[in-house]
Nucleic acid binder design. Structure first.
Lengths: 357, 357
DNA sequence: AGAAGTTCGGCAAACGTTTGCCGTCCCGGC
DNA sequence: GCCGGGACGGCAAACGTTTGCCGAACTTCT
């Protein structure tokens, strides 16, 4: 409900305070030298009028809008959301507002969004996707700094920020080795996904370095689903019954895996340790037992992207890609001291996994 | 990489095309009457220069910025996100850009965001939360239309859009009754949550109307977790072993419930049918069996909010609260024809796969 | 009392558009 | 040949700020 017909302008404040518009501006921006009494009078007047300087006018003059675009090319989801929020959070404290644009993977829509963002004179742009596969740079020549978060640009000169997934995989495998596991299998997502490949490669490399070939004949690629986790767990145990650890490419897969292990009477982690990936809280903590898992620190990723963008806007760009470390979150699925002290249940696998489609 | 030092302005276009700035503006906005040759020349010039009219200047003059704020008071999460995206989607097609502001439940931050949004001369505001508990209206007098989505304002005169959760519960219970269930229990979240109360009340009411008291002695309030689902399922079956359906307040709870049912050898849905709430795809489809569940149609909610906001901006506000219908998504957990044909244990049938589209 | 310096605050241009008004030119009709 | 009218397009104000410059008034010193 608009208090009156029109929002007060700086001129309204000036008139009421008996000064000129320029003076009001100086008071509000703490420029020039003003008498203390004038300053107070103007401030009070502005307050009573509820005056808010018009950012549009300000931006028009300064050439900066103090806004940035957050363009998600794929679809805002579980992975891109924390990145967005981290960025929003970091930028917000600097008085920078954020335009949210979801192109839903549609190139037309992406261009359209880009056009309007540029018309709005954004100071910078963060581009994010839900996967870490490199993406082609934006099709138009963007006259403001751009940071690619999560999904790096294929152009190495562009600024990109992404999680060090390989490092995450290494953390996981080293943890398993350190806790005495020797026959470690790996179940993960589709091989066409960069994430699946990168993590699997590093996992194998670390194992090789430790003189332990990957169990069950190498990585098993499939999908990022619980169903695949269940299916693969059975296959792994069939192929290598003495397998004592399974590193999973996602928490969903890990959940399927522990479910099957449980049904087969293998105690996690005593018999088999399991590590997930993503630290998707709701999944990882609801699993039985809760999952040790790799956290990609996506909020930190968003913050880093925002900070780099701000640096670039302020004139000191740091071109190139930057990888941020993952962390390992320890939970019961790898910690024998936390394991439920429980005998492998009496022979009653309640149900053999019905194969569902 | 800025092509040159400065972005082209309408004056640059005018000079190059040999006309005045006003003329260029008329061409671009299809005002006045211009010779066809002039029109083409101007358009070409604008194109080659890559001219984009400055929205800030335009907004300054017109008094409208063609932007709205999306203020999430609580924290952007699973529930508010689809609402945000639905709104963004709907507004985007109307050339309206969206400022994303997450106040993380901090009132200070909320006020701060509000101040900057108003300074940016947003045309309207959508306020959302992650729960459906009514919230106090915004603390400041906002001079633009406001729509509360998901979490309605306690002021009934404000515009609010929210899901008809009671209707959703009714859908679920009627479905169970229609498929022949008679001893229906209800397991849900904390009683202090509006959602839990509303759904439980309607569920009981519908059952009462059908002459079937709620099984297991009435609704069981707990938390929105799988753990609570597991715990409650055991309690329900202990109290009422012949219970033949459990309506759950969330998909997470439902997952815990089906997990326990499975372990206890009860076949879902043959012995016990289960209905969830939220249609959280990844949860509902990964459960064994996949869950029939209530969908709150959150994206539609966001769209509705956006449409109401737009109507209000255009001068025809529709005050008051509006409830949007939920839908029921059918999956195996209630549909006997889709159930794996498998008896509790004594006889062992062919493990035939239930088929889903 | 006058000079010099300081403090305070007004003036006006500038940012990039849009738009109403007006002038000019051309065409056709008488 | 003159007049009326329509087509075309320029001019300038306006939107709400910010800021450099300048003038007025006051203070202080000699």
């Amino acid at each position: 409900m608009p208090s009156e017909g029109r929002r007060p302008t700086i001129v309204d404040v000036a008139r009421l305070a008996g000064v000129s518009a320029g003076t009001v501006s100086k008071v509000l921006n703490e420029r020039g030298s003003l008498r203390e009494s004038t300053r107070r009078r103007v401030l009070e007047t502005a307050e009573t009028l509820g005056f808010r300087p018009n950012s549009l006018a300000r931006g028009l003059l300064s050439g900066r809008s103090y806004t940035v675009g957050l363009l998600t090319t794929d679809h805002v989801g579980r992975f891109s959301l924390p990145v967005l929020l981290g960025a929003e959070d970091t930028l917000g404290v600097g008085e920078i507002s954020v335009f949210l644009c979801d192109s839903r993977g549609d190139a037309i829509r992406e261009r359209q969004h880009l056009r309007t963002l540029l018309a709005r004179r954004i100071d910078g742009l963060i581009v994010t996707g839900r996967r870490t596969d490199p993406r082609p740079p934006l099709p138009v020549d963007v006259p403001v700094p751009v940071v690619y978060a999560m999904a790096p640009s294929t152009n190495p000169a562009d600024m990109s920020v992404l999680p060090d997934e390989a490092g995450g995989a290494e953390l996981a495998v080293r943890h398993l080795l350190a806790t005495g596991r020797t026959r470690i299998a790996h179940v993960t997502g589709p091989q066409r996904h960069n994430s699946a490949r990168v993590r699997a490669e590093r996992a194998e490399a670390v194992l090789a370095e430790a003189g332990r070939p990957m169990a069950a004949g190498g990585p098993r690629f499939g999908e990022w689903s619980e169903r695949w986790g269940r299916q693969a767990a059975q296959a792994v145990l069939r192929e290598q019954p003495d397998c004592d650890a399974i590193f999973c490419g996602s928490d969903q897969i890990a959940r399927g895996v522990v479910e099957i292990l449980r049904e087969l009477g293998r105690v996690v982690p005593t018999d088999v340790a399991v590590v997930g990936f993503d630290n998707w809280e709701v999944m990882a903590t609801a699993a039985r037992p809760p999952l040790t898992t790799v956290d990609m620190e996506l909020a930190a990723l968003g913050q880093a992207a925002a900070e780099r963008l701000r640096a670039a806007i302020d004139g000191s760009p740091m071109p190139g890609a930057q990888q941020l470390p993952c962390t390992l979150v320890l939970r019961d699925s790898t910690d024998p001291t936390l394991a439920p002290v429980r005998a492998p249940r009496p022979p009653k696998p309640p149900a053999k996994a019905g194969r569902r489609r």
